[in-house]
C-alpha cells in the first residue's frame, strides 16, 4: 500500500508543480480567476477532511483495544465527513458550470477543475476503502492482534487528506 500511496503523492506533486510553474507565466490571469473561487467552501472542506482523518485515527485506536463496533462507528463518521466534502464540492463545481466556467475557460480553471476532480475521485476511492474496512470490522474481522487492514485503509485516507492540505492553500489562498 505504501508504494501505491507514494505513487499517488508523486502524481499529485507533479500536478501541483505544473500549476505553480504555469502560474509563473500567467500571474494576473491566475490571481483574477482565483477571486471567483468560494474560499469559505474550500476552508470548510479542509476541516471536513481533517476531521475525517481524526475519526480514522480514533477508529484505529479502538480496534487496538479490540473494540470492533466502536471502530466501525468512527469509520462511519469519517465516511460522513467524506460524503459531506463530496456534496460541497459538487455544489462548488455546479456553481462554476452555471456561471459558464469550464476547463477550457482558461489555464487557471483547467487546473482548478482538473485537480479538484482528480482529488474528488480519490475521496470516493477512500470512502470505498473505509466502507470495506468498516464492514469487515462490523463483522468482527479485525481484532487487537489483527488490524493491519484498518491501518492500511487509514493510511490511504490520510494521504487523501495530506494532498488536500497542500491543494487548498495553493489553489484557494496564495496569490
Amino acid at each position: 500500500m505504501w508504494f501505491f500511496i507514494l505513487a499517488e503523492l508523486l502524481v499529485f506533486g507533479v500536478f501541483f508543480l505544473a500549476y505553480a510553474f504555469a502560474r509563473m507565466r500567467n500571474v494576473e490571469l491566475f490571481n483574477a480567476s482565483q477571486l471567483e473561487l468560494d474560499r469559505l467552501s474550500g476552508a470548510i472542506n479542509t476541516i471536513l477532511l481533517i476531521s475525517g482523518s481524526y475519526f480514522v485515527v480514533r477508529a484505529v485506536d479502538q480496534i487496538r483495544h479490540d473494540q470492533s463496533r466502536a471502530c466501525t462507528h468512527w469509520l462511519i463518521a469519517a465516511m460522513a465527513c467524506g460524503g459531506t466534502f463530496l456534496i460541497l464540492k459538487l455544489v462548488e463545481f455546479g456553481a462554476k458550470f452555471e456561471a459558464g466556467i469550464n476547463m477550457s475557460t482558461n489555464t487557471f480553471f483547467m487546473f482548478y477543475l482538473g485537480l479538484g476532480f482528480f482529488h474528488f475521485m480519490h475521496v470516493i476511492l477512500g470512502m470505498v476503502i473505509l466502507g470495506a474496512v468498516a464492514l469487515k470490522a462490523w463483522k468482527g474481522g479485525y481484532s487487537a492482534s489483527n488490524y493491519g487492514g484498518v491501518e492500511t485503509g487509514a493510511a490511504y485516507w490520510h494521504m487523501v487528506d495530506l494532498v488536500w492540505i497542500v491543494l487548498f492553500p495553493l489553489i484557494y489562498i496564495l496569490n
Binding site: V56, A154, D161, L162
Partner: peptide, 9 residues
Amino acid sequence: GRLVIDRFM
C-alpha cells in the same frame, strides 16, 4: 502536513 504524516499516519 507534518502533523498528518508524523501523528495521524
